[in-house]
């Protein structure tokens, strides 16, 4: 082998090693579902600053940082466990079959260790803020991993309803990180997120029902059809609208929030009710899925600002 050939081979090897390293890092990040973490962090920040505005309680940026880090790590751990538990079902869905575990790019033991370490680091970080935040983080993790992913997601149409507990906890962690007590503000934040999730998630379930059917997930549109799902969406939204009014009534939000929540809530309701008419189902579900994200973001920002 000439020295030129050897250099070329070494270069190829180092490029490949670099690509493999890059791929491992990408997989490690993807396993944590960063988009889910980011959207949940927005609600956690909303809870945190809602408590700051309402109570004028003492707080520090260190607490905010620990709360953010702890919540993100606990959620990341939950998502890693979700990847482990769903790996066989993920193989059957086009959207998920390229993930690290279905493609066997990583071993289950390695990913399990990664998930446990993330969880421990997250709960410890929350414990440094206060014990209530750590308990809430652990409750959220258990409800996501055990109640939703392990149990209900593969056995019942109720997965969306009870799985909502996990999604409702991040803003409560943010709030309790400041107040260190579970009071009306925490309850309102929990109720708001809890009732927001069924109409949000069921829109996605309608959109992707064939994929969920193929993977064997017994979601409401798969088991009981689109009509029944739309009815449930309307019912939960009808319960969500009054909860948003209470933020204003309890002095947690200002008039801008009140008016915005009524207008956006009623428009959402109008859109859902129109869904019973002649519509393109796919387009309709996509539109109101994204609207629900926009609705949550807008109201979360207004809560943070205290307007």
């Amino acid at each position: 082998m000439t020295s030129v050939q050897k250099e070329a081979d070494d270069l190829t090897e180092s490029v490949m090693a670099g690509q493999i390293n890059q791929s491992i890092w990408r997989d490690l990040i993807t396993l944590t579902k960063p988009r889910i973490i980011m959207s949940n962090l927005v609600t956690a920040w909303a809870g945190f600053f809602l408590a700051v505005k309402h109570d004028a309680a003492g707080w520090t940026w260190i607490e905010w940082l620990l709360m953010t880090l702890g919540s993100a790590l606990v959620m990341a751990s939950g998502c890693v466990f979700n990847n482990i538990l769903d790996r066989e079902m993920d193989q059957r869905m086009a959207r998920t079959q390229h993930r690290a575990l279905p493609m066997q790019r990583m071993s289950v033991t390695f990913v399990l260790t990664y998930g446990i370490l993330l969880g421990l680091a997250g709960v410890s970080s929350l414990y440094l803020v206060n014990s209530l935040s750590a308990i809430l983080g652990l409750t959220g993790w258990l409800s996501y991993v055990w109640l939703y992913t392990y149990w209900l997601k593969r056995t019942s149409t109720l997965s969306t309803v009870w799985g909502g507990i996990a999604g409702s906890i991040p803003p409560v962690i943010g709030y309790c990180a400041v107040t260190n007590s579970f009071d009306m503000g925490a309850l309102l934040l929990f109720s708001f997120l809890y009732l927001w999730q069924p109409p949000h998630f069921l829109a996605l379930a309608i959109r992707r029902r064939e994929e969920y059917r193929a993977a064997g997930f017994p979601l409401l549109p798969v088991v009981h059809g689109v009509e029944a799902t739309k009815i449930q969406m309307v019912r939960y939204l009808a319960a969500l609208i009054p909860v948003t009014l209470l933020f204003y009534g309890c002095n947690f939000a200002g008039p801008v929030f009140l008016v915005t929540s009524i207008v956006l809530g009623l428009y959402w309701m109008y859109g859902l009710v129109r869904g019973f008419g002649p519509i393109e189902e796919e387009k309709w579900a996509k539109r109101w899925f994204f609207y629900s994200i926009w609705y949550l973001t807008a109201l979360s920002v207004l809560l943070m600002l205290g307007w």
Binding site: L158, V161, L187, L220, H224, Q232, A239, V243
Partner: peptide, 30 residues
């Protein structure tokens, strides 16, 4: 399509009424 009833239908009244009761209790308590 025929809409059949299942536990999801009963979950809604349970969840909503439960939340209403807790909110009312907390609200008046405040």
């Amino acid at each position: 399509e025929v809409v059949r009833w299942d536990w999801a239908w009963f979950c809604y009244p349970g969840v909503t009424l439960g939340l209403l009761i807790v909110l009312a209790w907390y609200g008046w308590g405040m």
